[in-house]
Computed example of a mutant assay.
Amino acid sequence: MSAKSTLGTIKRVGAILIAIAIVLAAGIVVGQAPAIFGVEDDPEASIEFEDQQGDGESVVIGEVTLSDGGFVVLTDGGDEPLAVSDYLESGTHENVTIERAEDAEEDLVGQLTATVHQDTTGDGYAYEETEGQEDRPYLEDGFPVSDTASVTTTVDDDALSDSFTVDSIDAPAAATTNETIEITAEITNPTELQTQQNVEFRLGGTVLEQQVLELDGDETREVTFQIDTVGAPPGEQPIGVYTDADGAVTTIALEFHTDPAVEVVDASEENVTTDVAIPVDGFVGIEAEDGGLIGTSDELDPGEHSNVTVEFDEDVEVDDDEELTAALYEGEPDDDEPTPFEDEDGEPVETTFTIADVAEQEDAEDEESETDA
């Protein structure tokens, strides 16, 4: 082999070794990218932070998912966070409200960034106080998981100063869904002028009653609402009293006033009539012997309903002696996969019948009525 050929071979081998070194070095840098930002990239997170209007005291994160739990931290480009969420457990959380820190000097307005942090200490958020050694951000492709939104304020100081204020609200902690409850609110006119404004009561976000209130300047007065809970959904419900630009909110635990039930009161080859007590939005479904739905009622609000009619589907033929089932369902009648309603024991609320048995029972009741007459 000539000296020239040997020299060319040495150069090619050297170039290959240099290329390998570059690739290895690049791999090391890429592999260390998470370490540059202070966390491992095994934990996963995502966040959705939409543009919104607020009062400067809080913002709402639309959705955040954390594989190992942690916090959402709000910043505006400064060194210190403006606010930190409560600890969030592993999983997906929607509509997470984050309150401004008590010692924060700035309102939660402007261009804000929400970053998802881990909880490595298990003892509250500690990223700043440990100089970034603990509770570091989740990473995606080597960068902190975050989202930025524009938050504008809805507070109009002039409007708020002219509005009646709701100083307090007094309401029962619990009630049933078939009674009248009394709610008392203390309302103040903060201006020096006699003013008339609307005061409204809401249950679960729905306005149930409004009163026109006239107050002298600096006057405070109690306003009482008598609210009928019939038709209200059971469970923990928000209740509130609101003026033009102020309000107060509390909660009430509503218990359904009776046991859920469905009773067949009439039946024919075309339809079935039922009496219903249902604590959720739902409907009555008629099931054939094979379990398939052959008819559904209109959607029902929570409460008691008399003479709920269920028409059989057009292509359905039912024998008088065929065993049918009337059952309660949650949701809407046109759901592709309707969900049977279950009671507190996890049992479906239903009753079986035949058209012949219902007719026989009606005849017996008619004869008994005639005898009594």
Results as ranks from 00 to 15, higher is better:
334 D>A: 05
129 E>P: 02
92 T>Y: 15
293 L>E: 04
118 Q>D: 02
168 S>N: 06
322 E>C: 07
348 P>E: 00
161 S>N: 07
214 E>W: 01
175 A>S: 04
193 L>Q: 15
156 D>M: 11
10 I>L: 09
273 T>A: 08
184 T>M: 06
372 D>V: 15
48 E>N: 02
229 T>A: 08
37 F>S: 10
227 I>E: 09
117 H>D: 04
362 E>G: 11
157 D>N: 13
337 E>Y: 11
49 F>N: 04
319 D>M: 07
282 G>Y: 00
369 S>L: 15
116 V>L: 08
116 V>F: 15
289 E>L: 01
289 E>N: 12
110 G>D: 12
247 G>C: 11
248 A>I: 15
221 R>I: 00
315 D>T: 12
282 G>P: 00
256 F>E: 06
354 T>A: 08
26 A>I: 10
86 D>M: 11
369 S>R: 11
88 L>C: 04
304 E>N: 11
319 D>R: 09
363 D>K: 00
223 V>Y: 01
39 V>K: 15
195 T>M: 03
94 E>P: 03
271 N>C: 07
103 D>G: 06
124 G>K: 01
253 A>I: 06
364 A>V: 12
212 V>F: 09
91 G>C: 12
42 D>G: 10
30 V>P: 06
199 V>W: 00
351 T>C: 04
306 S>D: 15
210 Q>E: 14
332 E>S: 07
201 F>W: 04
344 E>C: 01
113 T>K: 04
72 V>H: 10
150 S>K: 13
266 D>T: 00
253 A>L: 14
216 D>S: 00
147 D>E: 02
364 A>I: 09
236 E>L: 13
337 E>P: 05
360 E>V: 01
27 G>Y: 07
197 Q>K: 09
6 T>S: 09
156 D>N: 08
149 A>V: 03
198 N>C: 04
72 V>L: 11
74 L>G: 05
340 P>F: 11
321 D>K: 01
252 I>W: 10
192 E>Q: 05
219 E>F: 13
310 V>T: 03
223 V>D: 00
15 A>K: 13
265 V>H: 07
18 I>C: 04
345 D>R: 14
163 S>N: 09
294 I>W: 08
37 F>T: 10
186 E>W: 00
221 R>K: 03
169 I>F: 12
151 V>S: 08
62 G>A: 14
50 E>R: 12
177 T>Q: 13
311 E>Q: 03
59 V>T: 12
287 E>W: 11
319 D>V: 06
347 E>V: 07
70 G>V: 12
222 E>Q: 03
346 G>F: 04
370 E>M: 06
324 L>P: 01
226 Q>H: 14
307 N>G: 04
202 R>E: 06
138 Y>C: 08
191 T>S: 02
204 G>P: 05
358 V>Y: 10
316 V>F: 11
